[in-house]
Design a protein around this nucleic acid. Structure first.
Length: 730
DNA sequence: GATCCGCA
């Protein structure tokens, strides 16, 4: 007999329940939201008791709606009761942390609803008096009328609201009209983020879609295992061998391969994933067969490789467009020649032979590449070619993947530039009678993955010319494919590969060193010239990087492969150089919070705010933590510009002593410290990219063995299966 | 058991 068992059981079984109306939301962040309110009597909208209040703490992804003042919530779960002193008297606080069950509803009746609409910012411009008039007009029909934006509903509303307020009412209500679905989905443990995506796509049919095939949820961000659990839990009539289940297992496996960067795969690579998901050999065989029958993938009869239909389509479209452009050659006529001469005349110095070739190649072909590493004069070539294109009457659209790269491109060519994402949100590039000629320039093209290139191709008219610039040996794109590397490899597109221009004062040894690594050769001496290798054990890397940083803080930046290591180094470095300075303080909903950023800390921004002059990847120093009514402090960027810290700026600030190499890609620093910790992304290309970030001095921190292994092994990019180069050749 | 980015 076990005397303890019943007690444990009781603790688990103790579920409490409360209804409440939200009166304050003291804290919101990406992984936690805290809101509290007054309790309501069950199934009524009267305040239940003045003796306690209810607080809910939850992950925002596990609740059906964003909390807002005036909403009604019901919770069920274990609760924690605490006595809280508020002024003269003591109140009880009932806290539900990550409750078992949670639902949100709109107040349904007069007074509460009026107040809710008047207060909720989503109903812009509708105050108390308008809300009251609205209730008097519609009464209980309120919800059914506001639910659908029809001319009849609008006609009704026009007697009490202006056109602007009517719009605000419908727009505000959209957030709440799906509440019933959200509650249902939350009850079925479907995360809020998945709910939102599903609702966007399926709208009011969302629940119907789930019931027809719960595995659709995988397409909106849920894992196969979680859906499997849901199916079991809810007793959907779906057997283990149901084709819906099998095909989504295959889909999941294929996606895993795509996430690794491949655009196609093999049965042998897919099988382990499928086996893990389905846990049954026979089902795995069935899944492959079903996938083939349903054209989830195309089997290449020559190579035996599996090509997911979506990826194959994208490669096909991209290859076709590039080949059409490549076939229009011999464009270099007298007209182009005079434009070329004009552009070259403007240069203050002479181009090398290879650089001249690069410029003329760009003018001679409708699609071309300028490739090469740092210090090869890519930007000079590009600037000259673009000048000539302008002279020929082309409108130039220059883009790069990241905000920071786009800004750098702008600085070097002097033209308007934009991120690719922004370009894609604007109108497609089409020739018109007043502007028939367009050129698209894609900088840092090594970062472009297949889906992005596909979208670009679909966004521009077939007559639009393209220039790629970049270094195919740098870090490969994050998404699948390796567009630039494939283009170069195929030799089907005109490409000029620029080599390092020998500088007279080239005594750092950096260009030679980086070249060796790029070729897969371990330099004879790991420390040479301005390059210093620091043999360090794995666990000591962060500390050594931190020590080296302190030797010359104003010139240094640490590059690390992972965000986790970046965070470690940042923490150590802050503790070492900046422990006692004042922290950045800010207020939210009347409460004070501290951010672990101190005066004088190196700061990294992680979002673009064009109006404030910062981009994702911008670096600076926290130069003030004095908060005023307008802002919480000030950052001085490495460009010298100053940025006021507002709430939105604060949300994208991190410590910047160390950054991931991906963030640093395209930037250069006087002195860099490389945290060489072996892992999935550290390969030859990673090391090469890191080393070419340095202007004057390099410190490599890690073990010789890891260094050598990274250099000698084939690069990750090379291991990527991609079909684009074959398609370009054929 | 463990990766990097850009947008909404």
């Amino acid at each position: 007999m076990n005397a303890q068992a019943p007690i444990v059981q009781q603790a688990v079984a103790q579920l409490h329940q409360d209804q409440m109306r939200v009166t304050s939301i003291p804290y919101t962040s990406t992984n936690m939201v805290i809101f509290s309110g007054v309790p309501l009597a069950k199934n009524s909208y009267k305040t239940n008791s003045g003796k306690y209040y209810v607080t809910i703490k939850a992950d925002p992804d596990t609740i059906p709606a964003q909390p807002a003042l005036g909403q009604h919530w019901s919770v069920k779960g274990t609760r924690l009761v605490e006595e809280m002193e508020t002024g003269d008297f003591v109140m009880q606080q009932h806290t539900y942390e990550s409750p078992e069950h949670i639902e949100c509803s709109l107040p349904e009746t007069g007074e509460q609803l009026i107040r809710f609409i008047a207060r909720e910012v989503d109903f812009k411009g509708i105050g108390e008096s308008k809300a009251r008039a609205l209730w008097e007009l519609l009464g209980k029909d309120f919800h059914s009328i506001v639910r659908k934006d029809t001319p009849e509903s609008r006609e009704w509303l026009r007697s009490v609201l202006s056109e602007g307020s009517i719009n605000a009412l419908f727009e505000g209500y959209v957030k709440y009209k799906n509440l019933a679905y959200c509650n249902w989905m939350t009850e079925h443990k479907i995360p809020a983020s998945v709910q939102q995506r599903l609702l966007k796509h399926h709208g009011e049919e969302s629940i119907e879609a789930i019931k027809q095939n719960p595995y659709v949820l995988i397409g909106f961000g849920m894992s196969f295992k979680d859906v499997d659990k849901l199916v079991e839990f809810d007793q959907f009539k779906i057997t283990k061998s149901d084709h819906r289940r099998l095909s989504s297992a295959l889909e999941t496996s294929i996606r895993k391969e795509i996430e690794k960067g491949h655009t196609y795969t093999t049965q042998a690579s897919l099988r382990p994933y499928l086996t893990k998901l389905l846990n049954d050999k026979e089902l795995v065989i069935q899944a492959f067969k079903a996938g083939h029958d349903r054209a989830q993938y195309i089997l290449n009869p020559v190579t035996g490789t599996y090509h997911p239909t979506a990826q194959l389509l994208m490669e096909n479209v991209v290859a076709k467009r590039l080949k059409v452009l490549a076939n229009q050659d011999n464009l270099f006529d007298e007209y182009a020649n005079s434009a070329y001469c004009f552009a070259v005349d403007e240069l203050p110095y002479k181009l090398t032979k290879k650089q001249i070739e690069a410029v003329t190649t760009c003018l001679d072909n409708a699609v071309s590449c300028i490739t090469g590493g740092a210090g090869t004069g890519k930007t000079t070539v590009l600037r000259t070619a673009l000048r000539a294109y302008q002279q020929m009457g082309f409108e130039i659209h220059a883009v790069a993947l990241s905000g920071r790269a786009a800004m750098r491109l702008h600085e070097s060519i002097g033209l308007f530039t934009s991120t690719i994402a922004k370009l894609l949100r604007e109108d497609p590039i089409e020739p018109s009678s007043e502007q028939p000629k367009h050129l698209l320039v894609i900088d840092e093209a090594s970062m472009i993955d297949l889906p992005t290139m596909y979208r670009l191709v679909n966004h521009i008219h077939p007559s639009v010319r393209i220039i790629f610039t970049g270094d195919p040996d740098q870090l490969p794109p994050i998404g699948c494919g390796k567009v630039l590397a494939d283009i170069v490899l195929s030799k089907a597109i005109a490409n000029t590969m620029l080599d390092i221009v020998k500088r007279q004062d080239g005594s750092t040894g950096i260009p030679e060193y980086s070249k060796l690594i790029n070729q897969g050769i371990v330099p004879e001496k790991l420390s040479t010239g301005a390059i210093h290798f620091h043999e360090t054990t794995k666990n000591n890397i962060a500390q050594v990087c931190c020590d080296l940083y302190q030797q010359s803080p104003e010139n240094s930046r640490v590059m690390a492969p992972t965000k986790a290591l970046v965070a470690d180094i940042n923490k150590l470095t802050q503790e070492a150089v900046n422990l006692n300075r004042n922290r950045l303080e800010f207020e939210m909903h009347g409460e004070r919070f501290f951010q672990n950023l101190r005066l004088n800390d190196a700061i990294l921004f992680t979002q673009n705010h064009y109006d404030k002059g910062i981009q994702n990847g911008s670096l600076g120093v926290l130069t003030s933590v004095e908060s005023s009514s307008e802002n919480y402090g000030e950052v001085t960027l490495d460009t010298g510009d100053k940025v006021e810290i507002t709430q939105s700026v604060l949300d994208c600030m991190e410590l910047g002593y160390a950054i991931t190499l991906h963030k640093a890609q395209g930037s250069q620093f006087p002195r860099i410290i490389i945290a060489l910790r072996s892992g999935k992304i550290v390969d030859r290309a990673w090391l090469y990219t890191a080393i070419t970030r340095a202007e004057a001095e390099i410190h490599i921190v890690g073990s010789r063995q890891d260094f050598e292994l990274a250099v000698i092994s084939e690069s990750n990019s090379n291991k990527r299966h991609s079909f684009l180069s074959e398609m370009l050749r054929s």
